[in-house]
Amino acid sequence: MGSALAYLGAAAQIGVIGAPLGLVIWMSLQDPRGQADWSLASWRTILVSQEAGFALAYSAVLGALIAALSTLLAIPFAYLIAVRRGRAGRFALAFLLMSWFLDPGLRILGWMQVIKTTTLFRLMPDALQGSLAAELVAGIHAWLPAAAILLAIGFARVPAEFVAAARECGASSISLMRRILWPQSQPWSSLVLAIVFCGATGNFLEPRLLGSGMFEQATEWLQRAMESEVGWPYASTMLILLLLAATFPLLLLVLSARRRS
């Protein structure tokens, strides 16, 4: 019974993840006229394209920055939820859960409307609009709730007696975090970083809403290719490359875990 369920699960995984991925790979092997093109023309074009390379690199850098800053900013919230608890912790948990489940695109659109219709818009430096900083803020805003809640789960898994012992030894909150909670919640905390990186690298809506203009991100490149009637093999290729780039840290984590074990 158990093995039958496992096979069923594996089949479902193939259906949900494998089939669309296979379709995208198949589409990347088509030429723009719909004929099978086994010369991998779109792959060669993109791999040698400086523009596509920059777009991918820019997405990865932005993803890494968003992951690092979101996780860093999420630490106090996670600490409040998992360690301090109490009324403030419960409130933070409720607020972050609500924010997480409310679509980040809707939140960003809402904030844009608020900023545009208030004096905030006039106070904001012109250089901030449509800049890297704007995308960074939007990315952090989008990923902070998820990062905080996932980190809190990791911190809550640290045995309470370690926290109590550290506090009894006179550890401050920062020391407790740096010396006990963060190391003890590994590799969970690294997994949170990787998850945020994966998501942030593949951000689709934010670049469209706040695109920097100076640097095109991989998702913008993808969008542009898809909008062109003949560009979808290139879009599929870029999608696969983006997927590989985004999940690269997860691959590293798995490899390092295997090496440790």
């Binding site: 045995p159 007696e161 370690f162 109590a164 009894e168 010396r179 006990i180």
Partner: peptide, 10 residues
Amino acid sequence: MSVRTELALF
């Protein structure tokens, strides 16, 4: 300072 059953050594 306390020493508990779990010892709580890091």
